[in-house]
Design a protein around this nucleic acid. Structure first.
Lengths: 253, 253
DNA sequence: CAGTGGTCTAGACCACACC
DNA sequence: GTGTGGTCTAGACCACTGT
């Protein structure tokens, strides 16, 4: 039962779609196959049956089966080649570095980060902020500064500017949830973002705040976030203690 | 002729698909609409006709038209909402998140990069490199070190390790092209990568090489690149002069 | 050659948003 | 209601791969 062929048959035969569910059939199929792949029931390099056979076995049409396969291709879980077939590509698991990312801290340590609100006020936009947000100078904006910590140690100083009229949430909410979650709740539909990652030395004040010596290397991140109407709804300028934080980025193709 | 409705009509009526071409119909349609959007013929916020009408006007079936629209959604150029319609979202930036090399970034930015090969030799893998590449310790690997400059100033020291058997190109090629381009030419089909971005202070030697004082903030990037067979084909550990280089990352939704 | 994925068609029904 | 996009079907032909 450990060879790819029989493993695949059991994967498909012990499953059937739920036509009463509001979840699309193609999504049900894709999710089931994804579970089979990430749980190694379908091993690295295994060939799947052709899509017509799979569609028949699951009782769906070929286009529906194709839609599911396209989902797996997009997620990077299979590779398809015309005339050859469909092959499983096991996603790589990341070996931890000396520097662990905040994501790792959260998932392995299970410790929620804490946020301290340093500043939250409505001010007229200066030239830099106005240009970033695409507003006229002097327009009212919300200026946030927060200090984020994990395991009792400071990780990042986060500075955000938002147009005054998009912020409808209570300011105290910021301690308990992420900014993006609050924007979504306010009805803002996020569309895209541009982030710039750099590095520079810490000033004395920044060092004190982040628990680093003056001149220590800091990671910097600037971000402009745009909503579906094409309006810039956030300009962020963050500072990370590089000795305790790094960014992990996953790319496909 | 400058209101959205008539602009769209002229966009569609002055175009017809080429059924003799090997290029898929849905791709021809998507490309045509994309050009109309990025050239602002279809302005920000304009509503497109419904997909049935557009399909008729172009003489394709609705599924084919849908495939084209899905492409535009994936590229972030339109937003669709059931019961409402399809709306144009002018992209703020045009570069999708992709697997690029520093060489490609710089040359597309018009800053003719130069590369100096500091080191290129076949050596047995040490413990760290062997673990990263998923090889046994002592397996032969290629060890590269290059110094990349733009406009006559050093930008990055790039250190790469590759399994000895994937490197089929001439070592001198590395001066004229990016490593990824050479891998592709060698028949390696890249699949995905994990990158970790951090920062640290420069040692004296690193500072001399990159034209920075000792202790200056440097950007670090480590990357493991995987091919379609799931093999790690590259482990990179790069060092960037943060005063002259930063990473730009584009995210959609 | 036979088998694979890639493309395309012409219908159909549904869920949702607005009037 | 009416109109929109979202899903699904049952076929068809083609291009590519390996034998």
């Amino acid at each position: 039962m450990s060879d790819p062929t029989s493993a695949q048959q059991s994967v498909l035969e012990s499953f059937s779609v739920d036509r009463g569910s509001p979840i699309p059939l193609w999504f049900q199929v894709a999710e089931h196959l994804e579970h089979a792949i990430v749980s190694h029931v379908l091993p690295q390099g295994a060939y799947l049956d052709n899509e017509i056979a799979m569609a028949e076995r699951l009782g769906v049409s070929r286009p529906t089966m194709r839609r599911a396969m396209e989902q797996l291709v997009d997620r990077g879980l299979v590779v398809r080649r015309r005339g050859i077939g469909t092959r499983v590509v096991q996603p790589k698991v990341r070996r931890p570095l000396e520097l662990t990312s905040l994501y790792d801290d959260l998932s392995s340590g299970g410790q929620a980060p804490t946020t301290e609100l340093l500043r939250c006020e409505r001010v007229p936009a200066g030239p830099e902020v106005a240009a970033r947000l695409g507003l006229d100078e002097g327009t009212e904006v919300v200026h946030l500064e927060r200090l984020r910590s994990a395991r009792g140690e400071p990780i990042a100083r986060m500075t955000n500017h938002l147009p005054g009229d998009v912020v409808t949430f209570a300011e105290t909410d910021l301690v308990g949830a992420g900014l993006y979650e609050l924007l979504r709740r306010s009805g803002v539909r996020l569309h895209s973002a541009v982030q710039t990652l750099g590095a520079r030395a810490a000033t004395a004040a920044e060092g004190r705040l982040l628990g680093e010596p003056k001149g220590a290397a800091l990671l910097t991140m600037e971000r402009e976030t745009t909503d579906e109407q094409g309006r810039v709804v956030e300009y962020a300028s963050h500072l990370y203690a590089a000795s305790r934080y790094s960014f992990e980025i996953h790319l496909v193709t």
